[in-house]
Amino acid sequence: GSLMYASIFGNVSAIIQRLYSGTARYHTQMLRVREFIRFHQIPNPLRQRLEEYFQHAWSYTNGIDMNAVLKGFPECLQADICLHLNRSLLQHCKPFRGATKGCLRALAMKFKTTHAPPGDTLVHAGDLLTALYFISRGSIEILRGDVVVAILGKNDIFGEPLNLYARPGKSNGDVRALTYCDLHKIHRDDLLEVLDMYPEFSDHFWSSLEITFNLRDTNMIPGSPGSTELEGGFSRQRKRKLSFRRRTDKDTEQPGEVSALGPGRAGAGPSSRGRPGGPWGESPSSGPSSPESSEDEGPGRSSSPLRLVPFSSPRPPGEPPGGEPLMEDCEKSSDTCNPLSGAFSGVSNIFSFWGDSRGRQYQELPRCPAPTPSLLNIPLSSPGRRPRGDVESRLDALQRQLNRLETRLSADMATVLQLLQRQMTLVPPAYSAVTTPGPGPTSTSPLLPVSPLPTLTLDSLSQVSQFMACEELPPGAPELPQEGPTRRLSLPGQLGALTSQPLHRHGSDPGS
C-alpha cells in the first residue's frame, strides 16, 4: 500500500510541476520586462504597450523563439521550412505564380514574418522605404497627419515599386495596425538579389506586381527641396563636378596662354591676372594647382613670374625650331616645348642647366612650328573623362623618358669634360720664339709635331656638333674642335714665318 501511495504521489506532483513550468517561465520573463521598464524609466503609455505586446506574443508563440529554433537546422532544411511557412503567400499572390521551385525557395529564405499588435506603428512618415510588405492577416491604416487616407487588409501590398527607383524613397505617411496583424516583408536588397539570379522571372514579377498603396513621397523628385535634403551631399558634389568641367572646357578654348597655377587659371584673360583667384576666387580649394602655386600668395601677385606667355621676339635665322618633346602628345598638341628640351639645344645650356634650372624654367623657349593648343594648358582630366590607368601609364612613360634624357646628358657632359682635359694635357705650358741651342744640326726643328685630335665617332658628340652648327654659343662658352686643319689655341699665330727665318745662335768662333 505504501508503494502504491508513493507512486501516485510522485506522478501527481510531476504533472503539477509540468503544468506550472510554463507559468514560471512566463513570470520570469515578465519580471525581466518590468525590470527593464523600471531601469530605463519608460513612461506609462509606452510601458503599457510593452506589457501588452509581451503578453500577446507569449500567448501567440508560447514563449518560443522561432528564429532561434529555425537557425538550429541546416540551410537546406531551413529553405523547406521557410517554404512551408510562406506557402499561403507564395501560392495566392499573383506576382509569385509561375516561378520555379528554386526561385520560390530563394524568396522564402528572404521573407521575414512580423507580428504587430493593435496601435503599433510599422512605418513612420519620413522613414526610408527599405522593404516591401505583404499583409497575411489583420488590417492596417495609413495616416497623413491625423487623416486616415487608406485601410488595407489581407493580401494587400504596400511599399514602393523598387524597379522604378535606384534609391529608396521616404514614406509619405504613417502605417498603423488596427488589429493583430501578420506581415511578410522582404528587404529591398534581398528581393533585387533574387531577381538578379532569376532574370526570366524578374520581368514577370515586375509586370504582375500591383502595389495597393504606394508609400513613396511624390514630392521626392529631382530638383525638389525634399530631394535635395535626401541627396544633399551627392547633389552638391555633382554640381561641383559639372562646374569644374564647364570651366576646364572654357580653358581649352584659349591656347595662347600657358599658366603654371593649374587648370583653373589657364583660361583667365590678361585683365584677371591681378585678381586673387581668377574664376576660382569664390572657392580657392575647388581646383588643383601645381607646386608653384604656393608662391602666388606673396605680395606682387600681378607681377609674379609664374604666369607664362609666349615671347614675341624673333628667332635667329640659324636657330632650330626646338628640341624633341618629352611626351608623344607634344608633337601634336603643344605650341611651347618643355623646359628640359631647351637644355639640349647647345653645349652652353648643358654647362648651365643644373646651376640655374629654376631660373631657366621661365626663360624664352623655342617654339614648335605648329600653332596647336598648349601642352601645359590642357586641363586636368576628371576620373569620369580619362581612366586612372591611362594617366598612370603616361606618367610612367614620361618618367622613363626623363631617365633616358638624364643618362644621355650625363654621358655627353662626361665626354666633353674628358676631351677638354685631354686638350689641356697635350698642350705645353708655354712657348717662346727663341729656342735653346741643340747639340747638333738636327735641332733646327722649332717644335715637335703635334698629332691632331682623333675624329669623334660617338653619337652623342655628333649631336653636340649638330647643335653647335645651329645654335649661337654665348661669349663665355668653350669652343669644341671642328672639322678641318686643327691648330692649338695656345700656339702663336705666325708659326709659318718662324720656319722661314734663320735661327740666331749665340757662340764663340775658336779662330777669332
Rank of each mutant, 00 (worst) to 15 (best):
I186F: 01
P502R: 08
Y165C: 04
D189Y: 04
E319V: 13
R247A: 10
Q361C: 08
P449V: 09
E328M: 12
R360C: 08
G323A: 11
T436I: 11
G138Q: 01
R505A: 13
G223S: 11
T455V: 09
E160M: 01
P270K: 03
S500P: 11
D182I: 05
P428F: 13
E297N: 05
D335M: 13
Q421C: 04
E471L: 10
D156T: 03
N219F: 08
P325H: 04
G511M: 13
P222S: 09
T130N: 12
G262Y: 10
E200H: 04
Q463W: 04
F205N: 03
D329P: 11
S290D: 11
L164D: 10
E295V: 08
S341R: 10
L395S: 05
A397D: 12
F213N: 03
I378R: 12
D189R: 07
L152Y: 01
R301H: 13
P291L: 10
Q463N: 04
E406Q: 08
G138T: 03
L365I: 14
R388H: 13
D196G: 10
S304C: 07
S432I: 12
F205R: 02
A497F: 08
P168H: 03
P279Y: 01
L453M: 15
D412F: 03
G507D: 13
L326A: 13
L129Y: 01
E200C: 04
D251Y: 12
C368N: 15
T212G: 04
V175Y: 03
V450N: 13
S465Y: 05
P305G: 05
T436V: 07
P387I: 10
S207K: 09
V194L: 04
V434M: 11
T336D: 07
P255R: 12
E200A: 06
M197Y: 10
Q421E: 14
L143D: 03
T130P: 04
P222C: 07
R167I: 11
P492A: 05
P428G: 08
R265K: 11
S462G: 09
L398S: 03
H506R: 05
F134A: 02
H184Y: 04
V347T: 13
R408T: 04
G281M: 12
T435C: 03
G440C: 05
P475W: 14
P428Y: 06
P510F: 11
L426A: 11
G269D: 13
L402M: 04
P492V: 11
T415D: 11
M413L: 13
E392T: 15
A411H: 15
L375S: 07
G138A: 01
R301C: 14
Q254I: 12
T218P: 12
P502M: 08
S293A: 15
T415A: 12
P222N: 09
L498F: 09
S202L: 04
L419M: 06
P314F: 11
E193W: 07
Y431A: 14
L419N: 06
A414Y: 04
W206D: 01
P429Y: 15
F467W: 11
S271L: 12
S259Y: 08
G173V: 10
G287D: 08
S271P: 14
P449N: 09
A166K: 07
R358T: 12
D146L: 03
P279V: 12
K332F: 11
S272W: 15
D146V: 03
V148N: 03
G507K: 07
T218C: 14
T457I: 10
P339A: 13
V347L: 04
P279A: 10
D356H: 14
N219L: 08
G440E: 07
S171Q: 01
L420M: 04
S208W: 04
R404I: 04
G169K: 01
S285F: 13
I221A: 11
Q401E: 04
N163L: 04
L162M: 10
S224Y: 06
G145L: 04
S334L: 07
P387A: 08
K170W: 09
L195F: 10
K185V: 13
G476R: 13
V258E: 13
Q363T: 13
G355T: 08
F344L: 09
